[in-house]
Computed example of a mutant assay.
Amino acid sequence: MKETQRGKRFIVIDGFLSDQDLSGARDLMERATFTRQESVISAEDGPAFRSKGMQFRAGLGTAGKSGRPEVYEELAHTVGMYSDFYGQAGSDWDRIAFAFWKYPAGSRLGWHNDAGQGRQGEFILFLHERWRPSWGGELKLIDEDPQSAAEDEATESDLVLRMEARIEQSATSPVAIVPKPNRLVLVKSETIHTIGRVDHTAGGTLRRTLTGFVSKSQKREADSANAREKFEAILSANCSPQPAH
């Protein structure tokens, strides 16, 4: 495992899994059941295929835990190592969700930013056995900090057009990351990115990934906010002037 590239909003790690663990991850993917998914970004994207998701809240990636596929443990451990990127486990994030994805020739995923739902970031592990650079399917991203929501909404109400407007206004060009087998890419939340269309020359070779989100439970955030509000209300009541007798 070697970190080979780093930007403001992404990290590329090559040779992520050992040969044994990579084989295990591919076997796990082969045994998964997939359903066809139409793009929620654009009707022009074409279909992809998604497995049933897995989500873990506590203990994943820590010493002494067993019984779960090694690829999940390794990914969670790596996410925990990059606290400068995702924040601290427990306080900044408390869950990791995983799903396998397959993209056939002719499909892509349009520009978007995966903001909201308590997400701190995401990761993509490429699991296909072979990938020619001419087959496309690159992960492309804008390595710039996001604008405020107000600035985005003022630019364009439609999501796709808003993302494209940001790219047109960008002072830099998108970074294109080739989907090299056994390559892991870490991405910060709200990073504008896209999956390039898989070229027809890929034939029957599918772009295969294990993709996941690192998130903070919204329920816990809401409970924490409610607790703070109640505490502040108590303090306010105790500090307010009392009527004279």
Results as ranks from 00 to 15, higher is better:
residue 119 R to C: 04
residue 140 K to E: 15
residue 165 A to C: 02
residue 161 L to H: 11
residue 135 W to K: 01
residue 155 T to M: 12
residue 132 R to T: 03
residue 132 R to D: 15
residue 152 D to R: 11
residue 126 F to Y: 15
residue 140 K to F: 03
residue 124 I to C: 10
residue 164 E to K: 10
residue 162 R to H: 02
residue 161 L to Q: 15
residue 158 D to T: 03
residue 122 E to K: 14
residue 153 E to A: 14
residue 150 A to N: 09
residue 131 W to F: 02
residue 139 L to P: 07
residue 163 M to Q: 05
residue 136 G to A: 00
residue 166 R to N: 02
residue 125 L to T: 02
residue 137 G to Y: 00
residue 126 F to D: 05
residue 160 V to P: 11
residue 142 I to T: 02
residue 128 H to P: 01
residue 151 E to W: 06
residue 148 S to G: 05
residue 155 T to D: 12
residue 148 S to A: 00
residue 157 S to G: 07
residue 167 I to S: 02
residue 163 M to Y: 07
residue 159 L to W: 10
residue 139 L to E: 04
residue 159 L to H: 10
residue 150 A to H: 07
residue 138 E to A: 12
residue 142 I to W: 05
residue 121 G to F: 02
residue 163 M to G: 12
residue 139 L to R: 10
residue 152 D to K: 11
residue 120 Q to R: 15
residue 132 R to E: 15
residue 161 L to A: 15
residue 152 D to Y: 11
residue 161 L to Y: 04
residue 130 R to G: 05
residue 143 D to Q: 04
residue 167 I to N: 04
residue 165 A to L: 01
residue 161 L to I: 09
residue 159 L to S: 05
residue 160 V to Q: 07
residue 157 S to T: 15
residue 122 E to S: 15
residue 155 T to G: 12
residue 150 A to V: 14
residue 152 D to A: 07
residue 160 V to W: 06
residue 143 D to F: 05
residue 130 R to W: 09
residue 145 D to S: 15
residue 143 D to E: 08
residue 128 H to Q: 14
residue 142 I to N: 07
residue 163 M to F: 03
residue 166 R to K: 08
residue 147 Q to V: 13
residue 148 S to Q: 00
residue 137 G to V: 00
residue 156 E to W: 09
residue 153 E to N: 11
residue 134 S to K: 12
residue 140 K to A: 14
residue 132 R to H: 13
residue 122 E to W: 10
residue 120 Q to K: 15
residue 134 S to N: 09
residue 124 I to S: 09
residue 149 A to V: 13
residue 150 A to T: 14
residue 167 I to G: 01
residue 154 A to V: 04
residue 131 W to K: 04
residue 154 A to S: 09
residue 120 Q to P: 01
residue 121 G to Y: 03
residue 124 I to W: 08
residue 151 E to G: 06
residue 121 G to V: 02
residue 159 L to P: 09
residue 138 E to W: 08
residue 140 K to D: 11
residue 141 L to E: 02
residue 122 E to F: 12
residue 119 R to T: 07
residue 145 D to M: 13
residue 163 M to H: 04
residue 161 L to F: 03
residue 141 L to P: 01
residue 132 R to G: 02
residue 140 K to V: 14
residue 157 S to F: 12
residue 129 E to D: 13
residue 154 A to T: 08
residue 137 G to T: 01
residue 125 L to S: 00
residue 155 T to A: 15
residue 145 D to W: 09
residue 136 G to N: 01
residue 136 G to C: 01
residue 125 L to I: 00
residue 145 D to C: 11
residue 141 L to H: 03
residue 145 D to P: 12
residue 167 I to V: 05
residue 148 S to V: 09
residue 167 I to A: 02
residue 124 I to Y: 12
residue 153 E to V: 14
residue 137 G to Q: 00
residue 159 L to Y: 11
residue 144 E to H: 03
residue 143 D to S: 06
residue 121 G to I: 03
residue 154 A to E: 09
residue 167 I to L: 15
residue 145 D to R: 11
residue 119 R to M: 03
residue 140 K to H: 08
residue 119 R to W: 00
residue 133 P to Y: 10
residue 155 T to E: 14
residue 164 E to N: 07
residue 129 E to Y: 09
residue 146 P to C: 05
residue 156 E to Y: 10
residue 155 T to L: 13
residue 143 D to C: 08
residue 120 Q to I: 10
residue 143 D to A: 06
residue 164 E to G: 08
residue 165 A to K: 10
residue 167 I to T: 00
residue 122 E to R: 13
residue 123 F to D: 05
